[in-house]
């Protein structure tokens, strides 16, 4: 065994700083602009107008939000849009103490799925909760959308700032 044991040298910060360890860096230039299409295009337009909209499957009757042009259960096309309320019920949530890029924060973000009134059970919008004590959030809590002022909306999910308790 002894002949296989070598003295080792650990890499230190200094070795990197002094260029004794070589590496390549590269920043990707990856930009995309996704065609929203029929279903999501309409959804975003309605958000800009301060409304929520879903679609109804003529086969199973489910009212789906976000809307889609086909039912993933029945595999049939859909063309019926249905207006929905901007209120709903918390299906699940988390208290998140790190930002998306892993910076620790004191006051948690509260991502939640909100089952939207008028949509089928279990159909909701993924958003954030606000104006609420994190400790008070519960599954089943009733909430309503807080919208950006009309002139600031741009047809994006962020046209809703957050949902707050009713």
């Amino acid at each position: 065994m002894k002949e296989h044991v070598y003295e080792t040298v650990y890499l230190r910060e200094k070795d990197f700083q002094e260029g004794r360890v070589l590496f390549e860096t590269w920043d990707p230039n990856a930009r995309y602009a996704w065609d929203a299409g029929i279903a999501i295009g309409r959804f975003l337009q309605e958000l800009k107008a301060g409304r929520l909209v879903g679609t109804r499957c003529a086969n199973c009757g489910r009212v789906m939000v976000p809307p889609r042009m086909f039912c993933e259960h029945c595999f049939v096309p859909i063309d019926e849009f249905v207006p929905l309320e901007d209120t709903g019920t918390v299906i699940t949530f988390s208290l998140c103490y790190v930002t998306w890029d892993m910076v620790r924060i004191e006051e948690p973000q509260i991502p939640a799925v909100i089952g939207i009134d008028g949509a089928s059970p279990g159909m909701g919008i993924m958003h954030l909760l606000g104006e609420v004590d994190p400790k008070a959030v519960k599954i089943g809590m009733r909430v309503a959308a807080v919208w950006k002022p009309p002139e600031e909306r741009e047809g994006a999910i962020t046209d809703i700032l957050y949902f707050k308790p009713l």
Binding site: D35, A36, G37, I38, G41, F70, P77
Partner: peptide, 16 residues
């Protein structure tokens, strides 16, 4: 260009 359809709607059309 296909600005009328999302990639999901395009895949659905081909699949149907």
């Amino acid at each position: 260009i296909t600005p009328d359809l999302s990639y999901k709607e395009m895949m659905y059309e081909a699949a149907v």
